[in-house]
Nucleic acid binder design. Structure first.
Ligand SMILES: [Mn+2]
Ligand SMILES: [Mn+2]
Ligand SMILES: [Mn+2]
Ligand SMILES: [Mn+2]
Lengths: 216, 216
DNA sequence: ATTTATTTTTAGACAAGTCTAAATTTTTTG
DNA sequence: CAAAAAATTTAGACTTGTCTAAAAATAAAT
């Protein structure tokens, strides 16, 4: 159907589209660790297949079909991540690279059965929503802890940075999905925040606060 | 590490090596649905990497390293087949094509945990042995039902033909792994065989008898 | 509104893997 | 054992996806 490279481009374009309506050649190149010239070549191919809308120098958007394909790959990625954590007991910082390979397994029946096997999980280990087989999902409105004021609270529900180092740090601080937190103080000097995480008090930098998301 | 194409060649050579010490270019081409010229190109590459012993016009054998890699791919293939049947409830004739893709997922830790998750199965859904992480397995000595005489019996433990049509036929006749069978008669005219499978009497052709394996 | 800087595209090349057609080697056979 | 047949390798070409370097277009800045 589509090659591995094409799938990776579609997925990257989808993710970049969440921040910008039109996605630029250079953004894609950066996301895929490749060069702008290579991206241009691929954009032509994807446009020929009518998976993206592409006008020279103007950046791209996904077509309806392109978005469906991207969402299906993301569905597979997140279901496999859930499987790896819930069934094989990997930690949340260990699964992304494996899922990058597994998301390209083509069988639709397989992924639907995997979904059922795990009882239709709604979110992956990082709190990201898992699209259903039609590509639909509820996008939960999350805010960074950084946007809270003193005495406000919420439940940790997602991360903005998926890097293993960040995830490992969070785990060590017990700042994991589902934990209820409350901002008890904000240090004026560097805007760092003091959190109450259940019984524990934790001090996090502004940087961390920006990348840790909560539902209020 | 190795490309998808290289892995498929190594696996094909391994399987063909079970029947012939030296594997020929044409045999590999047939097994992989490709052309002899393409095979020659790849054999040079695999020889450069010291994964096969190759002398022009003489056919190939796997090196120690080449065989280890082949066995690791086969381990992954069979563990995923087991997973698909035992956990996702696919039928034994449905899983091979999916496993052809899944066998290339690279993580060793993943496959070891999958192995543990399923409690270290020894055979895949078709009765083929699953190598352990070091590539070791007990090769069970199986014989085709065709080699039995009247009144001899055994337990169905493997198949020589893995095609969906054959597997579907066997399932319909209840001739599945683990069933005890006894040869009650052999028809002289066409060498077909009458079997007692638990309470049922079944009549199978010589062709089927040759491709259905039992442990005695 | 030009000039400069940045982004994007084009041109040309390369590696992997495949193919067809032709040349070579091995095997078979009369 | 020489001629024919079969198997294998080489030569040259093509596709996919990538790259560098140069050209063209767009955006930013004086
Ligand atoms: Mn991920
Ligand atoms: Mn995730
Ligand atoms: Mn199989
Ligand atoms: Mn099998």
């Amino acid at each position: 159907m589509n090659t591995l490279a094409e799938e990776n481009y579609l997925k990257a374009i989808y993710h970049l589209s969440l921040n910008d309506v039109n996605v630029s050649t250079n953004q894609i190149a950066a996301a895929l660790n490749t060069k702008a010239a290579s991206v241009t070549d691929m954009l032509k191919k994807l446009a020929d297949k009518e998976l993206i809308n592409y006008e020279k120098y103007q950046g791209v958007t996904l077509t309806y079909t392109g978005e469906k394909i991207a969402l299906h790959i993301i569905r597979k990625h997140r279901l496999w991540e859930y499987f790896l954590v819930e069934k094989l007991h990997f930690k949340w910082d260990e699964v992304h690279e494996m899922a990058e390979e597994m998301e390209h397994i083509s069988s639709v029946e397989l992924i639907d059965r995997l979904d059922k096997f795990m009882d239709y999980p709604k979110h992956d280990p990082h709190g990201d929503p898992i699209p259903d087989r039609d590509g639909n999902f509820k996008k939960h409105e999350l805010t960074p802890i950084a946007s809270l004021n003193v005495n406000e609270s919420g439940v940790i529900s997602g991360v903005r940075d998926h890097s293993p180092t960040f995830l490992q740090y969070l785990e060590k601080q017990q700042l994991v999905i589902g934990k209820k937190i409350k901002v008890t103080d904000i240090i004026e000097y560097d805007n760092s925040m003091i959190l109450q995480v259940e019984n524990i008090t934790t001090h996090i930098s502004r940087e961390v606060a920006k990348n840790l998301l909560i539902a209020i």
